[in-house]
């Protein structure tokens, strides 16, 4: 018999990296920027966080470092897309490729090193899991109830109008991109510091891309992101349970589950958005378009 509570705790833990990354990307996309570099920022955070946690013996210092590192590397993307007006899809890809390479290069000395132990938080649940759960209402409030959130959404919906009203489109987007980088960094560090407990090359294994799909799934809402992250946490836990139970299916096929589930969910939700009457209403109006003020 499987204890439902312990399964839920596993689900929480499995969904946390994706939750952080997807919440960050949600804010970025609401500001009208499509940053495909989530995977690169996550792996950067995973390494920086692990390195600092290992050096200081303090996992929380690791998470702070991961946030800083994620934000720092995201500014490369911000510079390219906001100052040099480069294509966002290509720049995001470049960030992912660069981040994966950089982390692999600097990560070599940390292979085979163990992460410092992490003190359990309230109810025996990791502090960072709590932080992720608290970030959901916080971001919901920021996006829908705060003045700055309104400006951010305005910039994302119609950057020409926001500019005409006197809001700084680039500065808003720069801040959003850096926030997204910090969140992705924390998400990545959760994998290396709190779940796998060591550093391995390419350890984020597509979590950043799944986070991008979850933002679409969420219909660009914070609560939707939480639902999506839990769905994927659930699929991951189920898949690991089936592996452990020795089901007569090759491990390699079971481990496809999160990726196939992402595709299926993406198809269902995109189909609904495409064929519903309020077609396209959810995605921010200026998503993926660069802004160049001529006046």
């Amino acid at each position: 018999m499987i204890d439902p509570l312990s399964v839920f705790l596993l689900l929480l833990s499995a969904s946390t990296p994706i939750l952080f990354a997807a919440l960050g990307e949600l804010v970025v996309e609401r500001a009208g920027v499509l940053n495909l570099g989530v995977e690169g920022m996550m792996i950067t955070g995973a390494l920086a966080g692990f390195a600092v946690a290992h050096a200081t013996g303090n996992p929380f210092a690791g998470f702070v470092a991961a946030a800083v590192a994620g934000a720092a590397i995201s500014t490369l993307f911000a510079a390219l897309t906001q100052a040099f007006l480069a294509n966002q899809v290509a720049s995001g890809l470049a960030l992912t490729l660069f981040g994966l390479g950089l982390a692999a290069m600097f990560g070599k000395p940390f292979e085979g090193v163990k992460a410092p132990p992490m003190p359990a938080g309230p109810l025996g649940i990791n502090w960072i899991v709590w932080l992720g759960l608290l970030a959901v209402p916080a971001i919901w409030w920021f996006l829908t109830r705060s003045r700055r959130g309104l400006i951010l959404r305005g910039v994302g919906e119609n950057h020409e109008a926001a500019h005409a009203l006197g809001y700084d489109v680039r500065l808003t987007r720069l801040a959003a991109i850096a926030f997204g980088g910090a969140m992705a960094g924390i998400g990545g560090a959760f994998i290396s510091i709190a779940t796998v407990l060591q550093w391995t090359e390419g350890m984020t294994a597509g979590a950043g891309w799944i986070a991008l799909a979850i933002v679409v799934f969420s219909n660009w809402t914070a609560v939707g992101v939480l639902a999506g992250a839990w769905l994927f946490g659930g699929v991951t836990v189920l898949q690991l349970r089936l592996q452990a139970a020795g089901v007569n299916v090759p491990v390699q096929l079971l481990s496809m589950a999160p990726y196939l589930a992402t595709i299926i969910v993406l198809v269902l939700i995109s189909g609904r958005q495409k064929y519903s009457r309020r077609a396209g209403a959810a995605a921010p109006g200026s998503l993926g378009q660069n802004f160049h003020a001529l006046r």
Binding site: V216, V267, K274
Partner: peptide, 9 residues
């Protein structure tokens, strides 16, 4: 058929 992003899929 469904408008799913070819990038992510």
């Amino acid at each position: 058929w469904f408008g799913a992003s070819e990038i992510l899929v």
